[in-house]
Each structure stands twice: as C-alpha cells, then as structure tokens.
Simulated scan of single mutants.
Amino acid sequence: MPSGLAALLDDVATIAKIAASSVDDVAAAAGKASTKAAGVVIDDTAVTPQYVTGFTPDRELPIIWRIAKGSMVNKLVFILPAALLLSYFAPWAITPILMIGGAYLCFEGAEKVIEKFRDATDGEEETLAEEVAELTSADHEKNMVSGAVRTDFILSAEIMAIALKEVADSYPSIAMQAGALVIVAIGITLAVYGVVGFIVKMDDIGLHMAQRENGATKAFGRALVQGMPKLLAFLSVVGTAAMLWVGGQIIVHGFGLHPAAWFGLHEGALAWIVDAALSGVAGLAIGSAIVPLHHMWAHRKAA
C-alpha cells in the first residue's frame, strides 16, 4: 500500500512538473508574441485618448472602462477563436481579412484629416452651450465608445495576428497557442487601457498636486495642468497618424511590398521610419479614396 501511494505521489509530481513546464512555455511564448506586437500596441495606446477628450472628468474613467471591456471582448470572444480557426483551416484568408480591416483604419484616419481641414475653412463654430450639450449627451458618449471599440477591433486583430504568427512558428500545439494568446490579450488590454487611464487623468493629478503646500510639488502640478491640453492634442495627431500608417502598412505588406527595402533599408530605426512614413502616405491616399464613396453610400441609404 505505501509503495502504491508513493508511486501515485511520484506520478502526481511528474504531472505537476509537466504542467508547470507547459505554463512556463505558454508564458514564454506570450512574452515573445507581445514583444513582436509592441509597435501596434503603442499605436493602440496613442489612438484611444482622442475618444475620451472633451468629456467631463467624472465620465473619463467609466468611458475608458467601457472601451477596455469592449477590447477584451474583441480579443477573447471574437478574434482569438476566429484567428485559431483560420490559422488551422484557412491560413490564406488571414491576410485579406486584415487588409479589409486596414482599409477601415485608412478610412477613419483620412476622415479625421479631412474633417480637420473642413473645420479650419468652414468658419462656423458651435456655441459653448452647444458643444457642452453635445459632449455631455448619452448618444455622444455611446458613439465615441462604439467608434473606439471598432477601431480597437482592427488594431487588436493586428496584434493577435502578429502574436499568433510568432506563437505558431514555435509551438504547433493549438492549446498552447490559445493559452499564449489569452495571456497576450489580457496583458496587452490591461497595459494599454491602464496607460490611457493614467494619461487622461494626469490633469486631475496635476490639479491635486497644485493645491499642495510644497513649492516644487505645486509647480509640477501646475505644469501638468497647463501641459495636458498640448499633450492630448499631440496624442490626437499621433493617433490619427497611427491609424493611417498601421492601416496603410497592413495593406502594403499584404501585397508583399516593403517600402523601406526600396531604399536598401531592411532593419533598424531608419527602416521603420521610412516604412511607417510611406505606409502612412499610402494609407492617406487609400482612405481619401474611400471617404467620398462612403458618404455617397450613406446619402443613398438615407434617401
């Protein structure tokens, strides 16, 4: 009996070691995959704050929480199962689907650029009361959250596709791939929206610091309050640019083109800058072609 119990305990210990090794492998795979997707994660972080700008402070974190929940649903409920199924049964379909998503990002980015120019030349401005009424309306909040979740879906699909490619190259087991992608999805979502939440609340942090007695703390708090509008305006520009270069890059790379290589650049920061810049130009051109087609379709649907 004791020998049987000892053998059983040995078997349990062996199983535990195998399980621990598998967990370590999954964690390692998730870490490598997250590193490969870091560029798109940064773009995702830059894009999101513009959807929260203009809301009253008490609504900022609830809105970010709603977007974060939508992002988690995007990754775990829709993208992860679809990515695994496509990878197993129809790997050829992943690139065209991503390219369609890339076209949507190009459209979103180009529409924002066109709206900026239109606002600058219109000369018509809303009254302060009209702006406040729009920004505090439930419909406006719902539309902004929906828009953020749609954009997140495309960026999340790109992140998960990059992660899946990295994992699939090293680990053929679909269970390990799924485990690694779950870790990537949760970790990246928490990181992105944690940073976004910190960014949009920095002015409140600065206001709190500005009320302290300590001179240095007060000065730093005032600097934060004064600098936040400029930072958010900068992030809005970066977010729009990110939509264009990520969308353009998905489409350009989908066709097997690598713009940096045309200039003899294959690796390094300069290659990335050239590739991103030319992909952004391509994204703006593609998006600018889609915008009028979308408006024509929307007018015909409304008629």
Rank of each mutant, 00 (worst) to 15 (best):
Met1Asn: 13
Ser3Gln: 13
Gly4His: 12
Asp11Arg: 15
Ala19Ser: 07
Ala20Gln: 05
Ala27Pro: 00
Lys32Arg: 06
Ala33Ser: 11
Ala37Met: 03
Asp43Lys: 07
Ala46Val: 15
Val47Glu: 05
Leu61Val: 10
Pro62Gly: 07
Ile64Glu: 07
Ala68Gly: 12
Gly70Asn: 09
Ser87Asn: 01
Tyr88Arg: 06
Phe89Leu: 12
Leu98Ala: 12
Leu98His: 10
Glu111Pro: 00
Glu115Asn: 04
Glu115Arg: 01
Arg118Cys: 09
Glu125Asn: 13
Ala138Tyr: 01
Asp139Val: 11
Asn143Val: 00
Val149Phe: 12
Arg150Val: 02
Leu155Ile: 08
Ser156Thr: 09
Glu158Tyr: 11
Ala161Cys: 08
Ala161His: 10
Pro172Ala: 03
Ile174Ala: 07
Ala185Arg: 14
Ile186Tyr: 07
Ile186Asn: 05
Gly187Leu: 07
Ala191Ser: 08
Val196Asn: 10
Met202Leu: 12
Met202Asp: 06
Asp203Val: 13
His208Met: 08
Glu213Cys: 08
Glu213Tyr: 13
Thr217Gly: 00
Lys230Gln: 15
Phe234Gly: 09
Ser236Asp: 04
Gln249Tyr: 11
Gly264His: 06
Ala269Asn: 14
Ala271Ser: 15
Gly283Tyr: 06
Leu284Phe: 14
Ala285Glu: 00
Gly287Leu: 14
Val291Ala: 05
Pro292His: 12
His295Asp: 14
